[in-house]
Design a protein around this nucleic acid. Sequence first.
DNA 1: ATGTGTGAACTATTTCACAGCC
DNA 2: GGCTGTGAAATAGTTCACACAT
Lengths: 225, 225
Amino acid sequence: MSRTSRQPSGTPARGIPEATVARLPVYHRALSGLVDKGVRMVSSDELARAAGVNPAKLRKDLSHLGSYGTRGVGYEVDYLHYQIARELGLTQDWAVVIVGVGNLGRALAHYGGFASRGFRVVGLVDVDPGCVGEQVGGLTVQSLDRLEEVVRQGGASIGVIATPASSAQGVCERLVAAGVTSVLNFAPAPLAVPDGVDVRRVDLAVELQILAFHEQRKSAVGVAG
Amino acid sequence: MSRTSRQPSGTPARGIPEATVARLPVYHRALSGLVDKGVRMVSSDELARAAGVNPAKLRKDLSHLGSYGTRGVGYEVDYLHYQIARELGLTQDWAVVIVGVGNLGRALAHYGGFASRGFRVVGLVDVDPGCVGEQVGGLTVQSLDRLEEVVRQGGASIGVIATPASSAQGVCERLVAAGVTSVLNFAPAPLAVPDGVDVRRVDLAVELQILAFHEQRKSAVGVAG
DNA sequence: ATGTGTGAACTATTTCACAGCC
DNA sequence: GGCTGTGAAATAGTTCACACAT
């Protein structure tokens, strides 16, 4: 089921490993920094340091995209930067709708890192009548009733859920029904979606809890014995 | 190297896999929901569904903590909930300092999901004089100059960095020097830290870019041919 | 009967180490 | 000489399938 047989030798590179995909944005950002500084060439060692990974991993990751480096020399910064952008789809515009305009939703609406990477927030939606109509980040907050309309008019394929956990599944279903095929979920609840829809979850409390686990182990070293 | 021979029958369980640790908070939250509903027993199938993972994985994960279930019956909700909390260190209090009181920092300061899991925000710090002195989430925002003081007085071992990328490394070094040993980094920059300090990174733009990658592939299906 | 706990098989990811090209 | 690209080895994580306890 849904096991699409991996092309072991396509021309550019079919089936980039998920772990690699998750690091491409990091490389892209590191390269943006080098572009800004006017650096022309970079070695895997330097780029790896800038991105916070080890060089072997970087080279293996890049090898999945093709041979964009020159042996004995390194990578041309501009060229690699563009190739990764293209691979990630950053050369096109993505319309995003944010549902839930609480503190987090506002932070997201104002976040400059989106706009500079081809993500355009085309809609802000909330249930709370006290916040509908308000101007946030240059957009007027719309009523949740108009969710479908906002998604369709904006042509959004990506939805961001920044609502309480209890509303997340319902909102998600309406987003998907309206045409959204990728969801970024900040609500602390698992989402069920049909095949073909991608969900990524960001859970702030989970991150702290993972840190707490390791933190606890550190103290335990002195205690055991 | 570092292959500490697995205790096949130690009392609790040494060396829980990182992937398992990252899911324990999710199980813990699902169990919290069941506790609230007054559910007494739960099977791995039910709990797995509530947590959004598959049952085999759930059972394997739990087996790393010990044998907390009953064959043919399932898991006692309260007991498992407590055991996971203990394993994660949620039975103790963790003092957290947040650096950077922009939109995101504010969202974090107000986030109820922390307090309910033993995370106490004991300090808010920012460079901007226009925001120092302001009351946010029941705390007075302190000047960045007083960072070390705030960490020490609050006894914080966890620091949250919600500053721009350019200040992140500097803030991180000061946090660590003041006694912080775990860092949650929202700034889009890799952090270099000494051994013994844990860093987790949450990068909102990265998440969207990963979605964009898959989104692009979806459209490509119809285009290729 | 039922559903956990777990070896064993499988899949994914990371790291090594070096051949090959500049 | 130096640095990329990559097979091969090592490690980590997931899923299967069934023995075993209740």
